[in-house]
Design a protein around this nucleic acid. Structure first.
Lengths: 353, 353
DNA sequence: TATTGATCTGAAAACGGTTTCACGCTCCAT
DNA sequence: ATGGAGCGTGAAACCGTTTTCAGATCAATA
């Protein structure tokens, strides 16, 4: 039987009313030094901690922030949640964490769960921020929320992100500068990541600017198992005019692509250069290091929570905050091979790697 | 103004008392078909969701599990939290997440925060499970909790873990079988991880069994920056009788050690073999793949939550659940180099292994 | 017909805090 | 002396549920 000591116990012990105890705890009104001392002593002796539940019921506000992300297994989200946690802790708040496992249909239900807990606000990464019924609902009920990683098309929505298109554009230009002409764009399912789509646009812009052909994106299920992955890539990289570089919509996908290419006997970066997006810590640790767009993932989580508090406390209007990114090239992004990787033979004799 | 629609609103609309509405929602007592239909209609029309706060205040139990881990940035904990989240969701519970950032002093305060929220139970990874005042407090207040990753010395405490000593012993034996005789043990700060200490014991047991000298562990601060790391390792691996293998207390440390060795011009695994512990996903993705003890991290989180529910619901006694592990060798764990890596100068000529 | 029992329902009391309101007291300016 | 302001305090209302208890209705039985 936990929680046997309530504010009433404290009041009895201190010989005062519960109202006075409450005032001492919250400093919500002046109390005499003498009474305050008695109350504090009673609190210490009893080991009393006010129930957040009781408090929340009256104020209809908890010291809790709801968090919704696709998955904790992706270090990007783990890092941003770590940032949120740190920022929330500074304000003496706790995170109520949920994950959709990349199922957009789960979003609505999970957000409802969080709202039922009277969270003070929400930090979300949704599959797609546009025309999102769940977000509209939150707006209608005027529950403050901030998006992370999502980059909304309107400034009327609160979000912390990077300029995905500009970043991917810069990364693509780095590839082009390294001599690559045929660059493939590999993505996770667009339906589960609007970021991915924005990044594709950046890729296309860079390609067009350089007068090159942007290829249609190859959508891979990057939760799928390795075999299917290798199979899908064998088709793309086995052809005569195979790309010399692969731009992946995120780091986790890039890692998985590198593994698949290796299994196909294709060397990275000697035969094919690969780059990702996000800048996960382990991309830096590996060798060769993963070329990518380095985004301040943890900071994004922190800023999201800070922006959320700003909105909660001062009623600040939602706004989009775009954080700076930096390019991490080298490593898996090398100069394009001088000649076509596979000597093109007279048909139909097949190329040897 | 969120949450304007309460159970009272529903009752008015359905033309019945709030007690009846409650009964319909929870099926806690029979209701006539007619009234039930009216109530359900009212709920749907109003979009009513019962407040978890109100409910919790009455029952003194929330549908919430408190989670305390060292850090989300370590994929091991991220994975086990992902498992907890999945298991909790199946039981319609939510996770209240906190992280200590490897500061043991923060444990007490954070657990108090969680308890103040009336969590139904707790899942924790603490720095050290033995003589832990915080755990004793939970026990005294009979708040159910389960440890993850920690391996308590008594069976009276609920925990989900692997047999750390046996696993490290097996890994060490694999190193010995590969011809290594001088094996260094590198650890994070023992004060922040009792697992690390248990693993060291497994290492020592294997070394002794093989008649080899177990060296004292080298404690590294694996949150520290790379430079200090390389410096510490330069001393160890620069000497004449340098180890040919390094056993690291966890994968993250192993990754960081590999990077530091690379910076020192030492090849892995050609010059020095390295192994970790945990089996993080990215160790498998890198090349050469990371030799390690593969532990079912995500499953551990799931099992921990299931065990917790068992304790909450059936009052089951705490027990330690040791999950199976498997060795992942090869990759960064190769045969010991035939000769000493660095040509030895004349005086005072040492024996070659 | 009266009694019993089974169903269904509503009023009201918790649960643990916060907050409003009113009241008594002191102090100071009139 | 008198009025007003200000301070410290306690009583009580309130937040949104669940749950107990008692009452109402009705069918079946004695």
């Amino acid at each position: 039987m936990p929680r046997i000591v309530t504010i009433r116990t404290v009041a009895e012990r201190a010989g005062c009313s519960i109202a006075t105890v409450s005032r001492v705890i919250n400093r919500s009104a002046p109390t005499s030094a003498e009474v305050e001392a008695r109350v504090r002593a009673a609190i210490d002796e009893l080991g009393f901690r006010p129930s957040e539940i009781g408090r929340a019921l009256k104020t209809l506000k908890t010291r809790t922030l709801g968090v919704l992300i696709p998955s904790l297994t992706n270090p990007v989200f783990a890092a941003s949640v770590a940032g949120m946690q740190a920022a929330a802790r500074e304000r003496r708040h706790t995170l109520l964490l949920t994950a959709t496992d990349y199922d957009p249909a789960a979003e609505a239900e999970l957000v409802e769960t969080l709202v039922a807990q009277n969270v003070a606000g929400l930090v979300l990464t949704v599959a797609c921020a546009e025309n999102n019924a769940t977000l509209d609902l939150l707006e209608a009920e005027s529950i403050p929320f901030v998006l992370v990683h999502n980059e909304p098309d309107t400034d009327a929505r609160a979000a912390v992100c990077v300029d995905n298109a500009a970043a991917t554009c810069a990364l693509t230009e780095a590839m082009i500068a390294a001599g690559h002409r045929n660059i493939a764009y590999l993505a996770g399912r667009f339906a589960t990541s609007d970021r991915s789509l924005r990044r594709y646009e950046g890729y296309r812009a860079a390609m067009e600017k350089a007068g090159l052909d942007a290829t249609a994106p190859l959508e891979l299920d990057y939760l799928g198992d390795a075999p299917s992955h290798a199979a899908a890539l064998a088709g793309l990289f086995g052809g005569l005019s195979a790309p010399t570089a692969a731009l992946c919509s995120n780091d986790l996908l890039a890692l998985s692509v590198i593994g698949a290419l290796r299994d196909l006997g294709i060397r990275v970066p000697d035969d094919v250069s690969v780059a990702g997006f996000d800048g996960i810590a382990l991309g830096r640790a590996m060798s060769p290091s993963l070329a990518t767009v380095d985004t301040p993932t943890r900071l994004m989580g922190e800023r999201a929570v800070e922006l959320l508090f700003e909105m909660i406390e001062t009623g600040a209007a939602p706004r989009v905050e775009r954080l700076p990114f930096s390019l991490r090239s080298g490593g898996t992004l090398a100069a394009a091979p001088k000649r076509t990787r596979r000597p093109e033979p007279t048909p139909p004799s097949l190329p040897t790697p």
